[in-house]
Computed example of a mutant assay.
Amino acid sequence: MNLQAIEAFVLSHQLGSISAAAKHMQKNRAQLSQWISNLEIDWNVELFTRSGHKPVLSEQGLKMLPLCEQMLKAQNHLSQQVEQIAQQGCFRLNLGVSSFLQDSTVAKILSRFNHAYPNVDLKIFQRRDELLLNWQGPKLDLAICFYRDAFPNDYTIEPLCEMPLMAVCSATHPLTKEKSPNLQQVLSYTWVTILASSNTQVWDPDSIQRQIEVEQHSLAIELCRQGVGVFVGQQQQLIPYIKSGELKVIAHNDAIANEQLGLVYSKHASPNPTLQALIKMCKAEFNNESSA
C-alpha cells in the first residue's frame, strides 16, 4: 500500500486541490493524480466526484477519509517511536552494582532512568566489587563499584566520589572497653566479612584469626549487632546503628578509611546515548550525596 498516495488523497481534500497537495509534497500534479487513481482502482471505490474544478469527496471518499487520516497518524507515531528507539541505541542494559551501595541510592538512579527510558529493559547484578571487576557472567554495560589501583586494562573507570568505610563492633563487644587497641588486638577477634571481599583495605584478612563470611551486608550487619564480630562497612549504612548506640566505631586510628567509587565500562565501544544518560544520572546522584 502506497502511503504517499494516501497522503496525497488526504491533502488534496484538506488543501482544496490536487495542485496544492502536489506543491506541499514537492511532487508534480500528474503523479499525485495517478496515485489517487491507483488507490481507487486498488480499493474499488471512487474517492472524488469528477465534476467541477475542486476535488469533492464522494460518499465513499467521505467514509475512507477518517480511516486514511488514522493510518497517517499511526504511521507518523511509528516513525517517532523508531527515531526514539534509534536514539536510545539499545533495548536492554546489564548493570553491575556494588553490594556495598545502599539500595535506596541505587533505586533513586534507576527510578529516574526508568522514567526517561521506559522502553529499555534493565538487568541488575548486585555483587562484590572484585567480582564486578573480574566479571564472568553476561556482559556488563556498566558497573558502579569500589576500586583501587588495579583493574583490567580493557575498562574505562570514571571516578565518582570517595566513600568512607568504618570498622565497627557491637556496643557490648570487648573491643569497646579498649581505649587504644593495637592492630594485633583488633585482629585477634572474630570478623564478619563479605565473602571473598577485598574491602578490608586497612585490615589484612589473612591476619584475621577467625572469620565468618557471608554473602549479604544486611546479614553481616545483623551479626555484628548481635556481638558476633567486627565488621567493615560503608559509613552511610552504619551511621543509623552508631547513632542508636547499637554499634561502636573501633578506637583505632585506621578504623575509618576512604574507598573510591567509580563507573566502569568497556574501552572497546563508546557508550551509546542510553548508557551515556545512565552515566550522567549516576554522576548527578553521587555528586549530590557527596555534597550533602
Rank of each mutant, 00 (worst) to 15 (best):
E83K: 13
I85Q: 02
A74L: 07
L72Y: 03
E69I: 12
K63D: 12
G61V: 01
M71L: 15
L78P: 01
M71S: 10
L67Q: 14
Q87A: 05
L62S: 02
C68D: 00
M71F: 06
C68Y: 02
E69L: 05
Q87N: 14
Q87M: 08
L62H: 05
A74S: 10
V82I: 15
S79R: 13
N76I: 05
Q87D: 11
L72S: 04
C90R: 05
L72E: 00
G61K: 01
L65N: 01
V82Q: 14
G61N: 00
Q75W: 03
N76H: 06
A86C: 11
G89A: 09
A74T: 06
V82R: 12
Q75G: 03
Q70R: 08
R92W: 12
C90W: 02
Q75K: 14
P66K: 11
L62T: 08
A86S: 12
Q81Y: 07
M71N: 03
S79E: 10
V82M: 09
E69G: 03
C90S: 14
N76D: 07
C90A: 09
Q87K: 13
L78M: 07
R92M: 11
Q75C: 09
Q84M: 04
R92T: 13
E83W: 05
Q81M: 14
C68T: 05
Q80A: 00
E69K: 12
V82E: 07
S79H: 08
